[in-house]
């Protein structure tokens, strides 16, 4: 469906995207994950034909977009990061306008409007001015407009920014239904949880370059630590209280900050009892225990040395 081949884009001396390649197949959600400024939006702009790459090319269904009026653009639906709606118009009028731009009219347009309005749960509010909508409703309508012409490839540029949990779930359900219907979805986000929940494959970007591309499971196996045991202590302790623990065979890493001990382990079932026994043997009494599964945050940290949220 989508082939991105070594695209590059620079603004002045700053390289926003540097040799990025990726593929997207029908019935798949590909996550483009990276901090702000990673080059996600520039990548999306090049895929959508809004920006011409300095090098490399973008192919949709095997060919490049040729000119403004190329019918191939009908295969593309864009959900921009910011709201792309006319607030003075009603939802129905917005859909009528954008339907007309994609050559829809008459009964086809009416049927398409009903389909997308129902899919995002806004059919009852279709005659209301968009200005009267909540932020979440606008986000859903923003998505509905992109779906109106039934594109095979949907590009979503951080579509849930500022959305309440209810609307976020509604959007996720819509996207999952689209995947089930065989649509190809490119989903950019800097929320790891969204990428973890939705994406079949994830591309991690930073500073315009691809750092890794794999399934969630595949990315997690790249980590030296699969799980982390967190142990909280109320008493005043220092790192020296745990001297020698890091040399145990089952311990991959060990840190102690602000009363919390974090121990990296490969196998929770076998290794947690051992570590806790060692702590008990030293007379240390903990106040709270919990286990953390490794996440994309850890992957990003491992790849860049920085936290995704702080990047």
């Amino acid at each position: 469906m989508l082939d991105v081949l070594k695209i590059e884009k620079a603004f002045g001396t700053r390289k926003a995207v540097d040799g990025l390649s990726l593929q997207l197949r029908p019935g798949e959600i590909l996550g483009l994950l990276g901090p702000n400024g990673a080059g996600k939006t520039t990548t999306v702009a090049m895929i959508a034909g809004l920006l011409i790459p300095d090098a490399g090319e973008v192919r949709i269904q095997g060919r490049k977009i040729q000119g403004d009026q190329d019918p191939l653009k009908r295969q593309l639906g864009l959900v921009p990061q910011d709201m792309a709606l006319y607030e003075d118009l009603t939802a129905e009028e917005n859909l009528t306008l954008f339907g007309a731009l994609y050559g829809l009219g008459g009964k086809d347009l009416e049927a398409a409007k009903v389909r997308v309005l129902e899919s995002v749960g806004l059919h009852d509010r279709r005659k209301d001015s968009v200005a009267t909508y909540s932020g979440g409703m606008k986000r859903r309508l923003n998505l509905a407009v992109a779906l109106l012409h039934d594109p095979a490839l949907l590009i979503l540029d951080e579509p849930t920014v500022g959305v309440d949990p209810q609307s976020r779930n509604a959007i996720f359900e819509t996207l999952e239904a689209l995947r089930a219907a065989g649509k190809a979805l490119l989903y950019t986000t800097h929320y790891m949880e969204e990428a973890e929940r939705l994406c079949d494959r994830i591309v991690i970007m930073d500073s315009g370059r691809m750092l890794a591309e794999d399934t969630l499971g595949g990315l997690l196996t790249r980590l030296p630590v699969a799980n982390v045991l967190c142990v909280d202590f109320d008493s005043e302790l220092t790192l020296s209280a745990f001297d020698g623990l890091e040399t145990e065979a089952c311990v991959s890493s060990l840190t102690f900050t602000r009363g919390r001990l974090r121990v990296g382990l490969q196998d929770l079932c076998l290794d947690v009892p051992r570590v806790l026994q060692k702590l008990a043997d030293r007379g240390l009494r903990w106040s709270h225990l919990e286990c953390e599964r490794s996440s994309l945050e850890n992957v990003f940290l491992a790849l860049t040395g920085r936290s995704l949220r702080d990047a």
């Binding site: 034909g49 009026q69 792309a84 954008f98 992109a146």
Partner: peptide, 8 residues
């Protein structure tokens, strides 16, 4: 962006 993505 939305207008420019449309085939017009």
């Amino acid at each position: 962006k939305r207008l420019r993505t449309a085939p017009i």
